[in-house]
Write a protein that binds this DNA or RNA. Structure first.
Lengths: 209, 209
DNA sequence: GTCTATATACAGATAGAC
DNA sequence: GTCTATCTGTATATAGAC
């Protein structure tokens, strides 16, 4: 790689890093191109040498994220396919939660971008179903094994993903209220047994007050 | 009420109605003041005679909604406080779902507005906890009765509300994929028993394949 | 109170020098 | 490739006539 190209790559990386910081702080929609260039210590005009628009930059950030997240998911090589097994469910929730939190600013940015498409567009549903495809496949596997599902696999998967992404977005990272372990544990328990809790702990009929 | 005041009230109502339509179509952030006034058949300048800003208008719409939703919740006079009872849980989900869907455009607008405050602000969490206060109280009641909860009541309530509001926003109203009854049923079952399903239907240990 | 016309402000994007 | 300076489009909000 030549020196010129290296410098260009450096600038591009600086812009991306700055964008991540700015998105995390002000949000995607509120971040101006000039905010990014200023934070990266570059001039406004330089931005367009690397990205056609803010949306184009977001696409690049998403590509980076997917490349990295793909590694995580593949490397984990997680035990196959029984979401009703406590350990396996928790492992899935854990991985999904980690990915969401490590890429919170980019995922939030994508969320804002999708939102800007308007409520009538159905873009949010498309995103939700795509991002929860893994859950859906696991649920379909359960259904094939004649296990009772709460409903259509795609809908249940969307419900699970929607819950998690909403929490990931709502709970600001530096938050002291809930440590990550507690959140993962709570989500896992809720999705595993619901509000009634594990069978063993349920009061026998008539025994509850 | 005098004629002049009546005319003014009429214009204000027309602006509100137009805003609801435009918000539903384009989304809150994408809707321009001129979109609203044009849809209402009024001039741009008239807007500011009634509302100080788009945000101010949103506040008015939210006030209307809360007044109306308060009626619904109070009139229902729902059976008190056992979310582990299938009928009671389903009734709560049903009411919450109806409120969300009947006011989808306004709730979505508020959502976008909160989002615009930026991810670091924590505004989304505040909104989520406020809107799920009822769930939280019901869960605390369960905890007081020594029933096992999946986690901290406020967190579980937020998870429930987050799931529902995300689905309410993602599933566009005219959607044919899932009828309202199916959605309510699926959410209820998932929150009641989780992915493992009701105890009676669970395969005995070792019996599953 | 409502209208038309306009001022203000600012974000996105480009031109041209270096 | 990067910079400074600038153009363009557009949304908000106001001024002033009716």
């Amino acid at each position: 790689m030549g020196v010129r190209k290296a410098k260009a790559a450096e600038t591009e990386a600086a812009l991306k890093a700055a964008a991540r910081r700015e998105f995390a702080e002000r949000g995607y929609l509120n971040t101006k191109i000039t905010d990014i260039t200023a934070a990266a210590g570059r001039a406004t005009g330089s931005f367009y040498e690397h990205f056609a628009s803010k949306e184009d930059l977001l696409r690049a950030l998403l590509a980076d994220m997917h490349a990295q997240a793909g590694d995580q998911l593949a490397s984990g090589d997680h035990p196959p396919h029984d979401l009703t097994d406590p350990l396996q469910l928790r492992a899935h929730i854990q991985v999904a939660w980690n990915v969401m939190r490590e890429n919170r600013s980019v995922m939030a940015a994508q969320f804002e971008s999708v939102l800007a498409a308007g409520p009538a567009s159905g873009a949010l549903w498309d995103r939700l179903t795509e991002d929860t495809e893994m859950f859906r496949r696991h649920l379909e596997y359960l259904g094939d094994s004649d296990r009772p599902l709460p409903g259509d696999p795609a809908l249940v998967a969307a419900a699970m993903g929607g819950m998690m992404s909403m929490l990931a977005y709502a709970l600001t990272p530096g938050d002291t209220r809930y440590p990550a372990a507690e959140i993962v544990e709570t989500i896992s328990r809720l999705l595993l047994y619901g509000l009634t809790g594990p069978p063993a702990l349920r009061p026998a009929d008539g025994a509850g007050r």
